[in-house]
Design a protein around this nucleic acid. Structure first.
Length: 210
DNA sequence: CACCAGGAATGTA
DNA sequence: TACATTCATGGT
């Protein structure tokens, strides 16, 4: 994998799929909540959980911080792992509330903010980077299952760690929030349509690439 | 019925 | 560092 190929893949995906308008969420709180709920879970199930939270006026980090765990669990059940995710939502919402919310956290440098997010239970590397990119608008490339799959099928080299995969993109693509946003969203689109565990390469925008 | 989904935490070797 | 296990609902 090299710079030309990374740019070529981006152009092919963009031409085939067009702009994805990510992240699908109206508020910053909703994006953070969605980032937790979507862990190893299909997005349509996350939408049901978010809709339920909205109806209960709990699609809000401050409200979640004060809500009863049992109430949260019942509302987010459609997204699966409801015991864990309730605990994660609690820990993430306390983090935001106790640190003065978005505006104050936004004063931190990207690396400091990332390290801080990684101390929160329920926030791993991918979720931290998703929040950095889609909530704080920092130029951080998000690596997910689809990205790793794409690299293993078209990469030509072995990428073992998250950090290594992330460095590949960030060392070769200018740190542009807009581009990082679009590229990750396009890779997810590709993963859902074609680059699945059992790939359907008929009509794939990347058909024919090494 | 089997398989998988926009992962993370924890434990083992 | 590299895997294995657990968590759980809903779509295909």
């Amino acid at each position: 994998m090299n710079r030309e190929k990374l740019l070529l893949i981006y152009n092919l995906l963009y031409k085939a799929f067009g702009p994805q308008n990510w992240w699908p969420g109206e508020t910053k709180d909703e994006i953070v909540i969605g980032a937790i709920l979507t862990q190893n879970t299909a997005w349509n199930n996350v939408e049901k959980a978010i809709a339920a939270l909205k109806r209960a006026h709990l699609c809000d980090l401050k409200a979640l911080h004060e809500a009863e765990p049992e109430k949260i669990k019942n509302l987010i059940k459609p997204a699966g792992f409801f015991n864990q995710k309730c605990y994660y939502l609690k820990s993430v919402s306390s983090f935001f509330v106790e640190n003065g919310g978005f505006d104050r956290l936004n004063k931190l440098t990207t690396s400091t903010l990332r390290a801080s997010l990684l101390t929160v239970k329920g926030v791993g590397e991918e979720t931290a980077d998703s929040i950095l990119l889609y909530v704080f608008n920092r130029p951080v490339f998000v690596i997910d299952t689809y990205t790793k799959r794409l690299l293993s099928r078209h990469g030509g080299n072995k990428i073992s760690s998250y950090k290594q995969a992330q460095a590949l993109f960030m060392n070769n693509i200018n740190p542009d929030v807009k581009i990082y946003n679009e590229y990750h969203a396009l890779i997810v689109k590709l993963g859902k349509e074609f680059c699945k565990p059992t790939p359907t390469c008929q009509g794939c925008p990347l058909e024919g690439l090494p």
